[in-house]
Simulated assay, not measured.
Amino acid sequence: MSLRPLTSPWFHAPAGHEKLWLGVAILWCFVMSLMMPYWHFRGKQNSSGEAYAVMPADFLARTEKFVEANRVGTFKNPTPNAFAAELPLVEPPAGGDAYLVGRMWQWYPALRLRQGETYRIHLSALDLQHGFSLQPLNMNFQAVPGYDHVLTLTPTSKGEFTIVCNEFCGIGHHAMTGKIFVE
Rank of each mutant, 00 (worst) to 15 (best):
G172A: 08
P56A: 09
C169F: 01
G146P: 09
A61S: 09
E18G: 13
I171V: 15
A125E: 01
T118K: 06
D58I: 01
L89D: 02
V24A: 06
G178T: 05
T177V: 12
V72D: 08
M176W: 01
R42D: 15
P136G: 04
S2D: 13
S33I: 06
M55T: 15
Y99F: 13
V144E: 12
G170R: 01
L87I: 03
V31T: 07
A51G: 11
Y99S: 07
M176R: 04
G146V: 00
F66A: 01
H149P: 04
A69V: 03
A143N: 01
M55K: 14
I171D: 06
K158S: 14
M36E: 09
F75D: 04
R71W: 06
S47W: 08
D148R: 00
P136H: 02
P56Y: 05
V101M: 10
A57Q: 15
F168P: 14
P145S: 05
W105S: 10
G49Q: 03
T74Y: 10
A175M: 13
F41A: 12
L27G: 08
R120Y: 02
P92F: 07
P80T: 02
K65Q: 13
T152K: 13
R71E: 09
K76L: 11
P78A: 12
V24I: 09
I180E: 03
M1V: 09
Q45L: 15
W21V: 13
W10Q: 13
A53I: 11
Y108H: 03
P37T: 06
T74W: 07
I26A: 15
G178P: 03
W28G: 01
F30L: 12
E18K: 14
L100K: 03
P9K: 09
A84I: 00
V54H: 03
H12T: 15
F66L: 07
G146H: 00
V150F: 00
W39I: 07
W105I: 01
W10H: 11
V90H: 01
R71D: 06
L137A: 11
P88L: 08
A110D: 00
P93A: 04
Q129G: 15
N70R: 00
D127H: 08
F141S: 07
F141Q: 10
L137G: 08
M35H: 02
M139I: 15
E91A: 15
L128Y: 12
F30T: 14
P78E: 09
G73W: 07
L153P: 01
V24P: 00
Q129A: 15
F11W: 09
L134F: 04
W28F: 06
V150H: 03
S2E: 12
L20N: 08
F168C: 04
K44C: 13
A13G: 11
E117W: 00
T154Y: 01
A94S: 05
F181G: 05
V24F: 11
W105M: 01
Y147S: 07
A82S: 14
Y108D: 00
A13Y: 10
M1C: 04
V150I: 10
S33P: 08
G146K: 03
A13V: 10
M176K: 05
V164N: 02
E86V: 03
E50D: 14
